[in-house]
Design a protein around this nucleic acid. Structure first.
Lengths: 218, 218
DNA sequence: AACCGGGTCCCCCGCGCGGGGGATTTCCGA
DNA sequence: TCGGAAATCCCCCGCGCGGGGGACCCGGTT
């Protein structure tokens, strides 16, 4: 059973070019050609091809919007490959967020387009190398821990410990119980923390700690 | 001038296999073979090849550690391609964070390894499709805004407004001034917010707001 | 007309908090 | 040996905060 493919691009010439590429492969069948995003969405819903190859620039609904509509349907099984001339970062992010299986440039050699369709059909994904480079950079910063502000170095280990607990909204008494010390001790630590960090009260300390990444979200 | 390549893998057989692959290409020159990570780092520093192909599993220093050492040198110009048998997510993240130009599985066809080296040499990057799939999923969640907890719906617009200001550590008096209302009014709003969200005091409110992504970090 | 939710303002009360002092012990480096 | 930093504990004082009441006005629904 061959893999079924839908082509969406507003240039008839490019569509027939791609169709010709797929026709060289016995196991790939181009089941539909459409010229705009809305048609792509409805034809994908009707024919349920294995892979939809969408241009980003299309009338009525662009390829990104079509991708979002197609992939937001939980019953959908069609994988989406996006094709574009320009690799604007915003396009890439939106495509990946929507769950596209590929983001490729039109400069792609024909044989790689074929292999991309097979990759997408088996559930994997691929991104054009020129885009991957920037994606990695962006991903790296999203993984990187936020920089620790230098004034934190002024704090002693105990004070940092107390600050962490303050950041989690514990009262002085609760912190005292946790650390097995008197609450007057905690008050002293908190006071020192506020003074060293130039914060007015524990409320500012909580905000400070969260903004500076001392506490994980969720 | 040919592209120079360094090979690092602790299996001599695999090294000679790869060298044979590169030897078929007149414009690729394998300038060194090493069997461990430490040797890879020092040979890269000495020979400054265009691309280093590193196995992840290696003695003394693994491929990830070697990648980090190589790429943390600001004077370095060598691109790093990582090769592995298993595509553990943690490996991938660490590799990308270090700035690797590629993350490939050893099942890669020889001709694709060649093209991968050329891609890396020209400053682009590529990731094995099976890994890309999961990377996209991970990237999508990192882009997605944190889900808004349902109890926030209980708040009126004004109360949400006040909550945002509380989250930024403003005192009741400061909030009152900002909103051009009396401070008694603010107290009422804050009380309602605390009651509706089940929070003890404004300190908990600040932590709540930050944990639930109501405030941007930095 | 009566009702109600939302926004505004008011008073009282108790308490946690933060600043101002000071004190002790321990430990480490000069 | 003598500092000094760090951690611990103590007292007093003023104030911001939060709860518990109540009140008024407005706009929309019933």
């Amino acid at each position: 059973m061959p893999l079924t493919v839908l082509l969406a691009d507003d240039h008839a010439m490019l569509r027939s070019g791609m169709r010709a590429i797929f026709d060289t492969q016995p196991d790939l069948e181009c089941v539909a050609e459409v010229a705009d995003g809305k048609a792509a969405v409805s034809e994908v819903a009707r024919l349920r091809p294995d892979v939809a190859v969408l241009d980003i620039r299309m009338p009525k609904l662009d390829g990104l919007g079509a991708t979002e509509m197609i992939l937001s349907d939980p019953a959908n099984r069609t994988k989406v490959l996006l094709l574009t001339t320009y690799d604007t970062d915003e396009y890439v992010y939106r495509a990946l967020k929507a769950g596209a299986s590929g983001f490729l440039l039109k400069s792609l050699p024909p044989e790689e387009l074929i292999s991309a369709v097979r990759v997408a059909a088996r559930g994997d994904a691929l991104i054009d190398p020129s885009v991957t480079q920037r994606l990695i950079a962006r991903f790296a910063v999203s993984l990187a821990p936020p920089p620790t502000p230098p004034e934190l170095e002024l704090l002693t280990a105990r004070e940092r410990e107390v600050l962490h607990l303050v950041a989690e909204a514990y009262s002085n008494a609760e912190i005292a119980a946790r650390l097995h010390v008197g609450d007057e001790t905690v008050k002293t630590h908190v006071s020192r923390v506020l003074a060293k960090l130039g914060l007015r009260d524990r409320v500012h300390a909580v905000a400070y700690a969260h903004v500076n990444g001392l506490v994980q979200r969720r």
